[in-house]
Design a protein around this nucleic acid. Structure first.
Lengths: 225, 225
DNA sequence: TGTCAATACGTCACTAAGTGACAAAATGTG
DNA sequence: CACATTTTGTCACTTAGTGACGTATTGACA
């Protein structure tokens, strides 16, 4: 069982910690009494994603109930749905949360890069994150592929990224050289290559190095006649 | 309220027909006793999609219950789920059902066309279908955009098309000139243009002519440096 | 036309996701 | 310590979706 990287950083995933209260108290101790309430909520959020992903990877998404996720943490079902609107959000929400990071990355790309190149490099920055923990990335991807409802949400996430990057690209290049349709297609093409590369990596069992596959995919886009 | 085109053909949508039995009997009369059972099922299917889409367009997807769809037809809720696995399938399933038509279209494209051109023309053939009833297409698209769960299923449908067309393209060109990654990207690029064009059309209120937008989108892909 | 197997349907009971309302507990502030 | 705010738990409820089982309808054949 690999470590699970939740939004707040990597968290050990082996020992199924029933010591929820203890974690909270140590957090309080170390955090010098700034915003205790937010601290609690952040921790709860992390614990929920940790336990949830553990169970999903172990026994599948559909067969895991909210009660099973909530029970070892001593949290009520109702509270779960105050943190996550749906069961699926537990898996995909952190992906949407990294949208601003992508936008920043694209904004900070050198001005002399072509639009497509800038977007490609932005997406490539995610590849290195995946390389940090390939086993987990592969397991998560299998979960997404095998669970229809999750696959759908994953596609939605892709659309969110596309829209954000499209808006950023228009801003960056100006609407004259880069009107909406053109921007959308530039981003879409880069995203297409990205997705295709990720699928290729997945079909190979997640063992290959992702970066060269991605670079190959991006070059296939630019070489198209 | 526009007419709704269900898989079996266009069906008038205005008069909310409570004459389910009558429809069935006339069907039997005209159909020369071939396969009565299948006839019944096909009609039931069409009636369910018709009433369902009517209600979804009138009062929204989430606020419409299965009971509301089933009640005017005198069908039980249980039977609904023997025809459609989920509520969402009522809206998107017919799209998946046209996958083989796309595959045929691509297979029958002239051999001298470039791969990208062949796929593009295949997708363009759908545009003319949308032009048949733009008001309905626009209404359905709004439904898809405004309902998260439907948007997700719609994306799934896109993936199904992409995979089918990718496999067909590999077959058509041979795996040597067209390996998997390359085929996937070629199809993905065409689909990207297609989606972008459809969005552009939607953002314009669905009033413009779809075809020129699509052709513009496809040319933007090929003109990419 | 009557009989019988296959298939489709309705009813009932059930699980689980998700929501609204309200009271209790914890926290932030003075 | 007292009070307003926020968070949580409990309870009741709606709705999607499923399994089991009995009944009705159809197809095939005598």
């Amino acid at each position: 069982m690999p470590a699970i990287e939740s939004p707040g950083g990597p968290i050990a995933c082996g020992a199924s910690s029933h010591n929820f209260k203890h974690n909270l108290e140590t957090t309080v101790m170390t955090a010098k009494i700034t915003n205790l309430r937010e601290q609690f909520k952040t921790t709860t959020r992390q614990e929920l994603t940790r336990v949830g992903l553990e169970l999903f990877l172990q026994q599948g998404f559909a067969t895991t109930t909210i009660d099973q996720i909530v029970e070892p943490l001593g949290i009520s079902k109702r509270t779960f749905f105050r943190y996550f609107a749906t069961k699926e959000d537990l898996v995909v929400e952190w992906q949407s949360e990294m949208t601003p990071a992508f936008v920043d990355e694209l904004n900070n790309r050198p001005r002399e890069e072509t639009p497509f190149k800038a977007v490609s490099e932005t997406l490539l920055s995610l590849a290195s994150r995946i390389n940090t923990n390939p086993e987990l990335a592969f397991a998560l991807m299998r979960l997404l592929k095998e669970t229809p409802s999750l696959a759908g949400r994953d596609m939605e996430r892709r659309m969110v990224w596309e829209q954000a990057l499209t808006a950023t690209l228009i801003e960056r290049e100006g609407p004259k050289v880069m009107p909406r349709l053109k921007a959308r297609i530039t981003v879409g093409m880069a995203m297409t290559a990205w997705t295709a590369a990720l699928d290729e990596w997945y079909l190979g069992g997640g063992k290959a190095n992702l970066r060269p596959i991605m670079e190959k995919a991006f070059s296939l886009v630019t070489d198209q006649q």
